[in-house]
Design a protein around this nucleic acid. Structure first.
Lengths: 242, 242
DNA sequence: GTCTATAACCGGATAGAC
DNA sequence: GTCTATCCGGTTATAGAC
């Protein structure tokens, strides 16, 4: 993006100030999202509380939606931190998967209400906030890599048919859990945590069962489904920008 | 614009006029949704083209969203009509299921763009437009009954474990197909139709496989998942009937 | 050329007169 | 039941400051 010039001499004062302004707007908006939700967080309020003008906020973030992409990134980084020790110490696949999922829900909890309202926008396939959108590709890729790591560094051996697509399938599974969580009004998302416990068993079992000939067609479908989904997300439209 | 006085007795002239105004707004909005999509259809434009004032449109429909519940009902009725003969003549489960799904996509096609934008709102769990919301219960129930009919009047015998929840599972499957279709930009939704062809086989096969002991836990989870979902939608609110 | 501010525009929604 | 006038919030245009 911008040059980060030498830390010592005089020039970068401006740059730094801009960076600080940007950060102030970002922090303020993330705080407001948490505290008062998505709808009550107006651009005017973000600007006021960050002590910039409305127009200035728009100088740094093209739209309210763009502010949210930042939330995605931050949420993912927090998730990684929360998972770190588990992924280093645990080798059992079931425990690794369950731990990562529980951590995702737990770290997202402060944003629960926000996520619900946000989802309204994110669900629109044409929205840049859709988890399937090109704009979300970076976070999506990172999250998928996390799924790969869960499996790769575990003791479990994955049947060949599944291996290449398993991380994507697990990412879809994570999206499903998040979708459930968004709708889950129970105390401390307790229901979602129970859902994770129950479904993780099934998922791990299915990974082994994938070897069974009876299930071959099922596995094939699941695999080709993720491929199909990827194509939906990246439709070959060389489109003139409007 | 001019009164068509009551054929029978005197009183209901006003009532009829109101009904006609309401209908005019509704027709105009559904037409605009089809023709120009959701976002380009402003309340101001609906009002203008229906030849009422903006405020008057809001008198009949509390919000733009409420206009859309009307679309749901209409879409379902069109679907039923499109399925009728198939359901009367065909007895093979696979053919029945595939036919009903293809018909859903086909009858929805004129509203494809609209549905994509609409989905943005419908995905919000707090929105009355969510397919899981109490407000959507009537259409949801009808659609689930349609799923029950597909199975009940077919030749296939459903394993006991599955029987009570199968219609709900199939409804969820339909929601999944619709979700895919919303993202599907291929010509004539060709991709979605292919997806239906491929997944219907799996679904029908799974219905028989549900008997296998190895799959028992999977089936259990699927069943309890639909129950869990129903609870999410209806969080123990003892509500006064309105 | 980078930043900041003010004044609009637009569309959903509401208030209140008639 | 119908209207006009207005609010409110996302977004843009644009003028000027550094």
């Amino acid at each position: 993006m911008n040059d980060t010039p030498s830390p010592d001499d005089g020039a970068p004062v401006k740059v730094r100030k801009a960076e600080r302004t940007r950060q102030r707007i970002l922090d303020t908006s993330l705080r407001l999202f948490r505290e008062v939700g998505y709808e009550a967080t107006t651009m005017r309020r973000i600007a006021t509380e960050a002590e910039v003008s409305l127009g200035n906020a728009y100088y740094y973030f093209r739209s309210k939606d763009h502010l949210i992409q930042e939330y995605y990134g931050q949420a993912h980084r927090e998730h990684l931190v929360a998972c770190r020790s588990l992924l280093e110490e645990e080798t059992d696949l079931r425990a690794r998967l369950a731990g990562v999922l529980h951590a995702k829900i737990a770290t997202s909890e402060p944003y629960h209400r926000f996520a619900g309202q946000l989802f309204r926008t994110a669900a629109d396939p044409t929205s840049p906030l859709s988890p399937f959108s090109p704009e979300s590709a970076p976070v999506r890729t990172e999250a998928t890599e996390l799924m790969a790591r869960i499996v790769d560094e575990s003791e479990t051996r994955v049947p060949k048919v599944l291996r290449p697509e398993l991380p994507n399938l697990l990412w879809l599974y994570l999206m499903g859990i998040i979708l459930f969580w968004i709708h889950d009004a129970s105390e401390g998302a307790e229901r979602t945590h129970r859902l994770i416990e129950r479904t993780v068993d099934i998922v791990v079992r299915l990974i082994s069962l994938a070897r069974l000939p009876v299930l071959r067609p099922l596995v094939q479908t699941a695999v080709s489904l993720t491929q199909e989904l990827r194509q939906l997300a990246a439709p070959a439209l060389p489109e003139a920008s409007s």
